[in-house]
Each structure stands twice: as C-alpha cells, then as structure tokens.
C-alpha cells in the first residue's frame, strides 16, 4: 500500500511541475471542520494532510484556510458562502452533515468548486458541475482489523465504542463486526453508541464495562475515545486506532491504526481544478488506492515479548 502512495505522490509531483509552471496565483482551499484542528482525530487528520499538500505543492501554489468548531449547520453555511465570495477556489465541507448547505452554495457560486465528504455519494445525484464528493470505505479497513481482532483476542470478546451511527462510523462498525465474525464465528463483538462526539466520560465508562465483560481489544471513533483508550491501557487491553495514527497517545496499547490519507482524494480535486474541471467527480478512500491503510505498531503488538527475550525473562529457545 505504501508503494501506491509513493507512486501517487510521484505522479502528483510530476503533474504539478508541468501544470503549475505557468500559473502565478496560489490555489486557495478552505476547509470547514466540525471540530477543532487539534481534536486528535477527524478534523486534525484532514487539516494535517492539507498542510502536507501545501508542503508538497509549495506555498506559492497552494494556500489553505480553515474554519473550525463549525458544529452548527447555519454557521457552516455562512462560512462557505463567505469563502466563496472571497475567491477561494475549493471549499471543502468535512462531514456529510454539510452536504445540503454546500449543494445550495454551489448553485449560487457556479465558478467555485465545493466538496463534501465523507458520504459524498448521495450529493453527486444533483449533477452539479462544480461539486466533488469524497467517501471513505471504512467498512474495508474495519473488516481487515476486525478479522485481526478476532484472531488476536484471547478472551473471545472485543468491543466497539462509537458516537452516532452515521457516515464512515457506521461503515467501520459494520465492517469490523463482519470481519471479526468471518475470522471467528464465535467471537463476541460488543458495541456501544454514546450518542455524542464529545462525551469522554461515557466513552470511558463504556470501555470499563466492556473490559469487565471480558473484552481485551477495544476500538472506536470520535474525539471522545482517547479516554476509552486510556481504559484499555490501564487494563492491559489493546486498542485499535482509527482515522489517524494514534500510537503516540498510548504506545504500548495502540496495536494498529486504521489511517485515512485524505491527500488521496484532495490531490485529484486540485489537479482537476487546475485543469479547469470544477467538479462532477466522486473520490473514494479505500484499500485499493491507499486512501485507507493499516499501520501496525510493533511496540504494542509484541514489544513486551521482545523485551522479555532481551532481558531473559522469556526463553525463546527452550
């Protein structure tokens, strides 16, 4: 998968050196984020990937502005229209909830590109020429890590802690469950919906309850799950990270991370706009194009065993 990424990066670079040499003004992208740029998850992931794209293209060619904590739909509407009026070329609403307002803004600003994701699919039906969609096939990566969880679990019980059944969260939950069941039909997959993206206390208690019910591998989405990760750490369970590499939060606990590489869908949008095509395309993050990939963190998976062999507490050659 890494190879695909490198390939894409090279391809992107090649395209950009050809395409940009003649252009003067930078392409201006605005992103509308539901939570804050350091939420450790959803919004932070996209923002960091866009900063990486700025590095890649150079500050003279790409400019990024953000609006954060746009929980409220009407506020996001104002922001999107304001960015459009200010001459931004691409306005990304990061969350399916912004889809409707962006469709209406796209009609009023036909010269500006708009993008919505994840869950962009239904909005392509409007057939707007200046509207991109993006999706994340989180079910794919969920299936992969769900299968692994079922095989790794010693207790035969794993747990999912999610906020609301919507968008890629619903996909991840469904894929994880299916993958786990496929790998081990007897696996018990516990699932809690906390009803909130920010209720850390509830996410933490859900984790506690799952651990008490025997779960030894936990995973989940939303900004609130860092607290649940802490519960996994304190109880010797493993955590499967989601959306960004979460290993830094608990190196001995986060066994792997299902990472979203948003660049895979944003880069072609930039290229398309450069080529004069303002929309009409749906992009998907999936295993095939490297937009989704699993990053394995050795420290949590078998760090203890290695350490044991090194310090002699484990005999590797009996």
């Amino acid at each position: 998968m890494k190879k695909v990424q490198v390939l894409l990066a090279i391809l992107g670079m090649a395209l950009l050196t050809v395409g940009f040499s003649a252009l003067g003004a930078p392409l201006k992208i605005a992103i509308i984020l539901p939570s804050s740029i350091n939420d450790g998850e959803w919004s932070q992931g996209l923002y960091q990937d866009l900063l990486a794209l700025v590095d890649e293209y150079g500050e003279d060619n790409l400019e990024v502005a953000y609006s954060e904590n746009m929980w409220n739909i009407a506020d996001a509407d104002v922001a999107a229209r304001d960015y459009a009026a200010e001459g931004y070329a691409l306005i990304i609403g990061h969350g399916g909830q912004f889809g409707n307002i962006l469709i209406e803004a796209a009609r009023d600003f036909p010269g500006t590109s708009f993008a919505i994701g994840t869950d962009g699919t239904p909005f392509m039906a409007y057939g707007l020429a200046n509207f991109f969609g993006y999706d994340a096939s989180a079910d794919e990566v969920g299936y992969v890590v769900g299968g692994l969880a079922a095989r790794l679990s010693e207790s035969g019980t794993v747990g999912l802690i999610n906020p609301i059944q919507s968008g890629d969260v619903a996909g991840y939950e469904a894929g994880f469950t299916a993958g786990a069941k496929a790998a081990n039909p007897n696996i018990e997959v516990l699932s809690v919906w906390t009803g909130s993206y920010s209720d850390s206390a509830l996410a933490s208690e859900a984790a506690q309850t799952m651990v008490a019910a025997g779960a030894d591998i936990l995973t989940g989405t939303s900004q609130a799950v860092v607290a649940a990760m802490g519960v996994a750490r304190d109880n010797g369970a493993l955590w499967f990270g989601m959306r960004i590499n979460q290993s830094y939060l608990a190196p001995a606990t986060v066994a792997l991370s299902s990472v979203y590489d948003w660049k895979v869908c944003i880069r072609p949008m930039i290229e398309s706009i450069r080529a004069g095509v303002l929309g009409g395309e749906l992009y998907d993050l999936n295993l095939a194009n490297g937009g989704l990939y699993v990053e394995v963190h050795e420290a949590a998976l078998f760090g203890k065993t290695i350490q044991g062999i090194i310090d002699g507490s484990i005999n590797s050659y009996p």
């Binding site: 804050s36 939420d39 909130s196 850390s200 206390a201 933490s204 860092v226 607290a227």
Partner: peptide, 17 residues
C-alpha cells in the same frame, strides 16, 4: 475528571456535567 477518571484534557471535556 482530567487527572483521575479520564486522564486527559480536551476542549469541552465536561460535556455539560
């Protein structure tokens, strides 16, 4: 909350408690 129960700080950690 921040140093006994959840062991982290995030914006709006209390979530209306």
């Amino acid at each position: 909350l921040s140093i006994a129960l959840l062991n982290l700080f995030q914006p709006n950690l209390t979530n209306g408690m």
